[in-house]
Design a protein around this nucleic acid. Structure first.
Length: 326
DNA sequence: GCCCAGGCCAGTT
DNA sequence: AACTGGCATGGG
């Protein structure tokens, strides 16, 4: 499959206005995140695709001190509205305007958080996905191993996403709700191997097609609103709230991070979800999500799920994506 | 075979 | 309200 080439069309300089330190590497790249092909990271720079309305954009990100420099690549008619949309999206996705002082103050008083804070201080939540995209990712995480989540993600992106090339890197890009809403559940089940999720994805697509990001951001109870979608429960709703809406208090607990938090906060191999959540909210009132993020990422720092790319392995990365079998 | 994965729903107590 | 079985699929 030959990727569509995106040309350099803009450069955005985005100051980090939130207080406290800024850890660019661990803000752009999360050691615990599985490989999607939507983003690639080296020590010095990151690449990521964004759907901006009708446009597919490819962005190279790097930081110079407290300024994030985003080199934008597109293949379509890039207008001032696209530029403004993308600027807001990147600032929000990486929390460049968020204050961290409240969390840092709480965290400094909790011994179990000391190591994570030392190693990752200045890391912000990262969610380049919009509400629809992160909802789909959470759906694909439900009750399966990461290997199968990765398989399903690849199937969907190969069949319904885009393949693009810019600044020397090849990446996949998301499908929009419109682009996938009409795919029949049988196809999602049989061709894309989604299993019982095949019935849910069309409901997700229809909901996010009919409710804009702006509308959802304004919702006074987002978690309740998205749980109206068939296939969205407490876990998926919390992932959407903590990631896409950046609610620092929301944390999606699953069998995986539950064990990590039980060990770090309760000194036991495992515990009931309620026990873990109560402990997390008690230790970090209003910031349970941020606290969970720090503890989980610290856990994966030494053995990342999708490691950083060495600069000389970009060729192999591109080849793998361009020759992926559906 | 059997068990379990970075859950959710519908049907029972 | 709180519990339970079933749901798809693939890997150990």
């Amino acid at each position: 499959m030959t990727p569509r080439t995106l040309d350099h069309t803009d450069t955005l300089e985005l100051p980090v206005t939130g207080d406290g330190p800024f850890d660019a590497l661990h803000t752009f790249w999360k050691p615990s995140h599985y490989a999607t092909g939507l983003e690639a990271h080296t020590e010095q720079r990151s690449w990521r695709t964004f759907r901006v309305g009708d446009l597919v954009t490819g962005v190279r990100l790097r930081a110079e001190d407290r300024t994030v420099i985003a080199d934008v690549h597109t293949d379509g008619d890039y207008k001032p509205a696209h530029r403004e949309h993308l600027r807001r999206r990147i600032v929000a996705s990486y929390g460049l305007d968020e204050d961290q002082a409240a969390f840092t103050e709480l965290a400094a008083r909790v011994p179990a958080m000391r190591e994570a804070l030392t190693v990752l201080g200045g890391m912000r939540q990262s969610c380049p996905e919009d509400h629809f995209e992160i909802a789909v990712i959470a759906l694909l995480l439900q009750n399966v191993t990461i290997a199968r989540t990765t398989q399903m993600t690849r199937n969907l992106l190969v069949h319904y996403g885009r393949l693009v090339h810019f600044d020397g890197i090849t990446l996949r890009a998301w499908f929009t709700p419109d682009e996938i809403a009409q795919v029949p559940p049988e196809t999602l089940k049989e061709r894309d191997r989604l299993g019982f999720r095949a019935k849910s994805l069309p409901h997700y697509a229809a909901f996010f097609r009919d409710h804009s990001t702006e509308e959802l951001r304004a919702s006074d109870d987002l978690m309740a609103a998205v749980q109206e979608i068939k296939g969205v429960g407490p876990y998926t709703a919390a992932v959407i709230a903590s990631h896409a809406s950046r609610d620092p208090a929301a944390f999606g607990i699953d069998v995986w991070n539950r064990k990590i938090l039980a060990r770090r906060l309760l000194d036991t191999d495992d515990a009931a979800p309620d026990t873990v959540m109560t402990r997390l909210h008690t230790l970090f009132p209003g910031h349970a999500g941020t606290a969970g993020l720090y503890l989980v990422e610290n856990e994966f720092l030494q053995a990342p799920v999708a490691p950083l790319l060495a600069p000389d392995s970009v060729e192999a990365w591109n080849h793998a994506l361009e020759h992926a079998e559906p």
